[in-house]
Amino acid sequence: MARQVSTRRKLAFTALAWIVALILFFPILWTILTSFKTEQEAIASPPMIIPSWTIENYIEVQIRSDYFRHFFNSVWISVGSTLIALLIAIPSAWAMAFTPTPRTKDVLMWMLSTKMMPAVGVLVPMYLIFRDTGALDTVWGLTIVLTLINLPIVIWMLYTYFREIPVDILEAARMDGAILWKELVYVLVPMAVPGIASTLLLNVILAWNEAFWTINLTASKAAPLTAFISSFSSPQGLFWAKLSAASTLAIAPILVLGWLSQKQLVRGLTFGAVK
């Protein structure tokens, strides 16, 4: 029996929830609005709410600092590291989900434990290794590091998805005389794709926003958006509108991906502990 909820109560909760939500979202909204203001409007008193919708800042940011190079560095690094991680993780998670041994659990826990290592704990050797191998300030170098730091999460997410694929269906297919590759193509892949897709999505988000290694292991050439935006920390003159434009472009794609993946988020970030 559903509980009767009075409309008045619902309206009160609605108002409260919207107020809280808008307060939390305000900094983001304000950044987007400011990005379309002139620098004078950005610091006007009292604050201007409706901008003059200039796109000058976006053009300026591109001309002054080759913005799209940093943008595409972010794309290559986040997508590249995710794809490589998937390539390594899929067979591994597959094997653990479908041919578990008594040691599978220990292996999984050990993999997760590598994620607990604080980055500063290995900053020094990583920096020196990168310096000596010429990986410093390169896209490929960062791609490798981000692959490594996200690999445990990728394996775990895939494992929790794969584990939910019923094994019986495989046996049924085998009884029908399906050979191995047919089993894979027609039975398993379609069932595994949604899990792989959400793993990919979440991992691209994590890699895009990673702000320790990307800042410490790049200078200018391979700097992704995290490192580029950090360079705005000691600005000169009027720059808020330009900072907002650079920030808006940096967060927009990931906000959209995040909204799309919100259902899988909980599961991925808690290693399947909360579903």
Binding site: L24, I28, W208, N209, I229, S233, I254, L257, G258, Q262
Partner: peptide, 22 residues
Amino acid sequence: ILVISPFFIMPPVAALIWKNML
């Protein structure tokens, strides 16, 4: 969607928005 959005903001952007505009 509005409530979860801050989680997707990369740390440097979040910090600089707060530092400068708020």
